[in-house]
Design a protein around this nucleic acid. Structure first.
Lengths: 115, 115
DNA sequence: TCTATATTTCCATATTATTTGAAATATGGA
DNA sequence: TCCATATTTCAAATAATATGGAAATATAGA
């Protein structure tokens, strides 16, 4: 991931409504949610929601697919992982260090404390 | 970490100059860098740099300490880790999943591919 | 104290983002 | 085709953010 893409991704997430939308989609997993359901869960009126979803999509943080009358949105997990990687890249000059940790897969819930 | 703090942290990073500053500090590790050195490495004039450093500090992404005539800035790694955790929290409803990974410490460089 | 260096504050300007109602568009079913 | 529902687009007001020169402040050393 390049700096420009990272700034786009971060800017997409750096807003109350969009962060709420994205977190709801992360929790929903690959199945995703219809736009209306997202607006309901996040408390955002349709036109605002549409604006924010477009911002997230443009930054590659979410994908969408048509399903009948519904548009299903999903979090884009590979952009997400690329962003996490970018932020911790070459930490401490690439030397072993405790301060920052590279994301690594777990099969357990992500709510445990760390470092 | 709460949503408000996460939005602040993300907004702090969602800007070309500030992201460049933060990455330079992540790479510098706990030793940190003087403001002037950061400006030199990131190509940012003093007054702009000061503005952006203040933004990063206000969001808790960097800390500073006086060292003689210099002000040494360091990345705040615990805010960073809290942010990464927040973004992946309760991924896929808390069930085991491959898409998103919880940050976990490694002792190797952070440039390897993942998931 | 005086000087040089390091950093921050102030200021004005330019640019970009957020919000939401109303209207437009798209889809599926009767 | 006609209707109801789902979503997006448009428009315009408001608010927040970015920039960088010039001046102010702070520190160390002579």
């Amino acid at each position: 991931m390049e700096a420009k893409a990272a700034v786009s991704a971060l800017a997409a997430l750096a807003q109350d409504s969009r962060l709420a939308v994205f977190r709801v989609l992360v929790q929903a997993g690959p199945a995703g949610l219809a736009a209306g359901k997202i607006g309901e869960l996040a408390g955002i009126p349709p036109s605002s929601l549409s604006f924010h979803l477009k911002e997230l999509a443009h930054a590659g943080m979410v994908d969408s697919r048509q399903a009948g009358r519904f548009v299903i949105y999903t979090a884009n997990f590979s952009t997400m992982n690329a962003l996490l990687g970018f932020l911790t890249e070459n930490c401490c000059g690439g030397n072993p260090c405790s301060p920052v940790c590279a994301p690594a897969c777990e099969t357990e819930p992500a709510t445990k404390g760390r470092s």
